[in-house]
Write a protein that binds this DNA or RNA. Structure first.
Length: 450
RNA sequence: GGCCCUAUCGUCUAAUGGUUAGGACACGGCCUUUUCAAGGCUGGAAUCGGGGUUCGACUCCCCGUAGGGUCACCA
């Protein structure tokens, strides 16, 4: 499926409707349409389908734009169906004048229902198409009846607007969710009535919730929207990499991909036929991986974005704290949470702890422990403040720790510095705290034992 | 219910007639380690069922079964 010289340029589109925040399913659809277009050196169009005036909202329109930008899915053209009324009207009139559509008088049974709509004159035939993912699909369109294509000359319905736009915009490949397969015969009928070339279809398997049903806001809540993960401090690169692997694979064991690598190797033929569950565990793994690749400055920016973080200024001044703090997080909100719950308070202020914690494995020997801490203090005092880093600190403390028993020496030191049962190692802590503060905390612990 | 689609470890998936059915996430164990992690090694874990076709089926065909999608004057 490579683009040959002289072959028409590939044109794809992503066509969301601005009726809510962007859905993970839409993200995946957008990504695949984008990757396909870029892989073929083609054009990628963003088309906002806002013909439903009741449900379309400007804020969601903006949210779509923001999301596309955040994800890095750049488009070549953008259209809004609400601005294309005259175009649709032209085609509706054409269909009516050719007898392919007609104004239909309706019996009004519900509120808001029109007494007059425009229906497509269904030729009632079998429609077959070759779907790039599903293969050959055949439908009998008889059961569709003369379906509605517009509420009035100026109010086209989805089916008409989509087909007119795909035609006018020269879309060569319609890449969309599987929930649209059953709409496809309708669309093909309209393409034919218009005398327009029928594009190639590729219906993507659905992105499923853990209960194996289509992701839906009503049923599954906020976990369906990209916004949720973005606010949690996930990186766009993680989302892209993770979503690319839902329903698609490169055909080998490689799993970590940048977007430009994806563009190079993306192929619709490797798209899965069945739906796939959106599993956050793997997203966490990807995000952890990508966080490790960030510089401390970048990490700081991500943390800052979450807003209202304790000690943000202090962290900004001692940016090297970030590598330590991001060692085990899957997303930045986990770090924000740790910070808020005081897990890292000891880095910024004197720790408070009960004396019992300082004894190694129940080795409750006040005199011994005190003596060891005094020794440690003496050793550290001798270390030059200019080379007070963890390597040097470890080197100078190690012989004593070996002699006395590592745990017996290092555990009390670590507690004296952190006041915590769990924390980074004492060498790292000393370096971060600096020589002066390290000594102050050791003295505090020594006095506690007096 | 009609129509359409799908079916490999718990999850994402590889293997397009011949593999001890591979990888990743998650999980277990071991090692390392002053703690918690990380890291290294390692283990368990799958072809929905039944018929065919074939020397040989995860792979092709049929029938079941299960799951999903869709049946708007929403997109």
């Amino acid at each position: 499926m490579t683009t040959k010289i002289g072959e028409n340029k590939v044109v794809t589109r992503f066509a969301p409707s601005p009726t809510g925040y962007m859905h993970m399913g839409s993200v995946r659809t957008a990504l695949f349409a984008y990757l396909f277009a870029r892989n073929h050196n083609g054009k990628f169009i963003l088309r906002i389908e806002d013909t439903d005036k009741e449900r379309s909202k400007k804020e969601f329109d903006q949210a779509i734009l923001d999301t596309m930008k955040w994800l890095g899915l750049d488009y070549d053209e953008i259209y809004r169906q609400s601005e294309r009324g005259t175009i649709y009207r032209k085609y509706i009139e054409k269909l009516i004048s050719e007898g392919k559509a007609f104004v239909s008088k309706e019996e009004v049974t519900e509120e808001g229902q029109r007494s007059e709509v425009i229906r497509f004159k269904n030729p009632n035939k079998k429609i077959s198409f070759k779907d790039l993912i599903k293969g050959d699909v055949t439908f009998d369109t008889t059961e569709l009846g003369d379906f509605v294509i517009a509420k009035s000359l100026d109010e086209p319905v989805f089916h008409l607007a989509v087909v007119v736009d795909d035609f006018e915009m020269g879309i060569t490949h319609v890449i969309r969710g599987e929930d649209h397969v059953s709409n496809t015969p309708r669309h093909i009928l309209i393409f034919e009535a218009l005398g327009a070339p029928v594009p190639t279809f590729a219906h993507l398997p659905l992105v499923l919730a853990p209960d194996r049903t289509k992701l839906s806001k009503r049923k599954h809540g906020e976990i369906v929207s990209l916004e949720y993960y973005r606010k949690l401090g996930y990186l766009s690169v993680s989302i892209i990499n993770f979503m690319a692997l839902i329903g698609w694979n490169p055909g080998n064991d490689k799993e970590v991909f940048s977007i430009s690598e994806l563009i190079k190797i993306f192929d619709l033929e490797k798209v899965q036929k069945g739906g796939a569950i959106f599993n956050t565990e793997k997203l966490n793994w990807f995000n952890k991986h990508y966080i490790q690749l960030l510089s401390q400055e970048e990490k700081f920016l991500h943390l800052k974005e979450l807003g209202d973080i304790p000690f943000l200024n202090e962290i900004g001044e001692k940016i090297n704290l970030l590598n330590l703090m991001t060692e085990r997080i899957s997303n930045f909100s986990e770090l924000a949470f740790s910070l808020k719950s005081g897990e890292y308070d000891f880095l910024f202020k004197k720790p408070e702890y009960s004396m019992d914690l300082i004894f190694w494995k129940g080795e409750v020997d006040v005199l011994k422990t005190k003596e060891r801490l005094i020794n440690v203090k003496t050793i550290l005092e001798a270390v030059d403040s200019n080379s007070f880093n963890k390597e040097v600190i470890k080197e100078s403390l190690w012989p004593f720790a070996e002699k006395e028993g590592r745990g017996s020496v290092l555990w009390p030191v670590r507690v004296a510095l952190s006041g915590k049962e769990k924390s980074p190692d004492p060498f790292t802590l000393s370096e971060i705290l600096g020589k002066d503060e390290t000594l102050v905390r050791l003295v505090y612990a020594i006095n506690l034992l007096s």
